[in-house]
């Protein structure tokens, strides 16, 4: 039984839904519930939370009942920790640099870091790609579409 538990992804799936559902329902009780005729803001969250929790139990339950083997682990076969870090790091840099340094450094850093995530990428290839995208991005978004995003903060371009 314990082995079965550790092997099925659907247990995690059901558990996550149960958790989210209960969380939503509990948070929802903090808002006014009202009655059927005069629903308060808490009515839908509580109801939906209960439904989601129930679905979570069903998902885990059907996995328990089914005899089909599902030995896939939660993580993929070859976890791409570095790739994931790069994909998430790009936007983080975009936010920080965009807020304090401006569009050019933000775009360059975002594309550069994201590109590094690929196994075959080198610093040079990533930099070339990032430079290209930055030029294109500035032309399109700054000059053509003129979105309010200074190219370099503090410098009047």
């Amino acid at each position: 039984m314990r082995e079965r538990f550790s092997l099925k992804r659907d247990y995690y799936a059901g558990g996550l839904m149960l958790l989210l559902g209960v969380g939503a329902a509990v948070t929802g009780t903090g808002y006014k519930f009202g009655s059927l005729a005069r629903m308060g803001p808490g009515f839908m969250p509580v109801m939906l939370g209960i439904v989601l929790a129930f679905l979570g139990i069903l998902i885990a339950g059907t996995a328990l009942a089914s005899s089909e083997p599902d030995d896939k682990k939660f993580l993929p076969e070859h976890p791409q920790w570095f790739g994931w870090l790069c994909i998430l790091g790009g936007p983080v840099l975009f936010i920080i640099l965009g807020q304090y340094a401006g569009m050019i450094p933000a775009v360059f850093a975002c594309v550069f870091v994201c590109a590094l995530g690929d196994k075959t990428a080198t610093y040079k290839s990533s930099a070339v790609l990032a430079a290209g995208v930055t030029v294109f991005g500035v032309l399109l978004f700054h000059y053509l579409l003129s979105i309010p995003f200074p190219l370099l903060r503090g410098v009047n371009l």
Partner: peptide
């Protein structure tokens, strides 16, 4: 995908 990430952010 890096180019697409740029478009996503902006």
């Amino acid at each position: 995908y890096p180019s697409a990430m740029f478009f996503v952010c902006i």
